[in-house]
Simulated assay, not measured.
Amino acid sequence: MKITDVETIEFKTYSTIHYSRWGYQYDFFGPKYEVISSLTRIITDEDVEGICLGGNKAVTERWIKPLLLGEDPLDREKIWQWMYSLTRWRVNERIIGVIDMALWDLAGKYFNVPVYKLLGGFRDRAKAYASSGPNLGTPEDYADHAEECRKKGYKGYKIHPYIFYDPVKQEPCPDTRTFPEWDIKICKAVRERVGDEMILTFDPWTVGSGGGYSFEEAVWVGRELEKLNFYWFEQPLLEDRIEPYIKLCQELRIPILAPEMSVGSFYTRAEWITRRAADMIRMECGLGGITAVKKCVDVCEAYGVKCELHGGGFEHLHILGATSPKICEWYERGLLGPRFDYEKPRPPLKKICDPMDNDGNVLIPQKPGLGMEIDWDYIEENRLEQCDKP
């Protein structure tokens, strides 16, 4: 079997995420507006193809397609190593992830099994936590939302607090301004409302250079979270500086979950483990695909460190399906907010990836490959080339 074509299709769809002038998504659940999305497809000479949402059309044509044409799509490791070499100057890890996931999708369809079975099946469902959107309102608004999620069967709830947002003025602001006291007010309100029935975690999403919590603020917040029996403290400091994380892990009892945004795929995560800069490791398929995450999971298992996956999606469900909950425990479902209908699929998907049972578990997809059901009519009707025709 040989690869005969690789294409990235661009099409119009919509988003509800609204950005401030500082670049952060201060509102995830606002009015709809038009955006351009993409899907990448790998085609073979045996009428088997793999797909994945995402990709960059120009990069696919210039770098990925010439690299893959004529290759065996089952040689995923070789192709991954070739692609990763391009990260030095041509291709970022997110694009590599899209291609890698499409190759895994293709392999599952070729062998007529879901990807998690190819990886080495372990479970057909995984615990889900409700991951809140940021800036949902007052601490009581967060508590109302957490209670709503508990009633729906969620066993865990993650708080994204006031991020790039001033809770006093109720308006976006740069992340050089933080509000740790207000953030803890949210945590106290949620814990008081749900009691000990839910596992609670906290993610202030620190990304800005010179922004986010200071070291001293992070220590104070961490100690408050310990009093409230939170399970983890995620990405509390700027990840470009590893030494403060080492110090923070020494200061706090609550597990530090990081790094989330650092590039370098699983290689970076191995360094964080050996330097004891995090107690639990954060990883995602956007940092090199399923192949990279599986490597990271294996490293974490060797060191006895948990690997919690950032974000949801078909790809992360399959990783969880092939991994012990002692290593990868939770699935992040969301982002969620009041009056937001998460159960409605967004085009071009016909169905959501992560239906949940009555016990708060998401179900691992059972169809061959990744299990995505695509509305191809929607893509063709909204395809850029089609829309641009006179």
Rank of each mutant, 00 (worst) to 15 (best):
K2G: 00
K2P: 08
D5M: 00
T8E: 05
I9E: 03
I9A: 02
T13D: 04
Y14W: 15
Y14Q: 13
I17P: 02
Y19V: 04
D27W: 10
L39V: 14
I42V: 13
I43C: 06
T44A: 10
D45W: 00
E46W: 00
V48S: 00
V48Y: 09
E49N: 11
G54N: 04
G54E: 00
E61N: 11
I64G: 08
L67P: 08
G70Y: 14
E71N: 12
L74T: 12
W82Q: 12
W89P: 01
R90D: 05
V91H: 08
V91N: 10
V98R: 09
V98E: 03
D100F: 05
D100I: 08
M101L: 05
L103K: 11
L106R: 09
G108L: 13
Y110G: 04
F111T: 09
G120F: 11
R123L: 12
K127D: 06
A130M: 11
A130T: 09
P134Y: 09
N135A: 10
Y142E: 07
E147M: 12
D166K: 03
P167V: 08
K169M: 10
Q170V: 03
E171V: 13
C173R: 02
T178S: 03
F179L: 09
E181S: 10
E181L: 10
W182T: 01
A189K: 08
V194M: 12
D196E: 15
L200M: 10
P204E: 09
F215H: 02
E216I: 04
V221S: 14
R223V: 07
K227E: 15
L228E: 14
Y231E: 10
W232D: 05
Q235T: 04
D240A: 05
D240C: 03
R241T: 01
I242H: 07
K247E: 14
L248V: 07
I256R: 05
A258N: 04
M261W: 10
M261P: 01
S262G: 00
S262T: 05
F266P: 03
Y267K: 10
Y267R: 13
A270P: 00
A270M: 07
T274D: 03
R282N: 06
M283W: 00
G289K: 13
G289R: 12
T291K: 04
T291S: 13
V293Y: 04
K294Y: 08
C296P: 05
C296F: 04
A302C: 03
K306T: 05
E308D: 03
H318E: 14
K326M: 01
C328E: 07
R333A: 12
G337A: 11
G337Q: 08
F340W: 15
K344Y: 02
P347K: 13
L349P: 01
L349E: 05
M356N: 12
N358Y: 06
N361K: 00
V362P: 11
Q366N: 09
K367V: 00
L370E: 01
E380K: 15
L384F: 04
C387V: 12
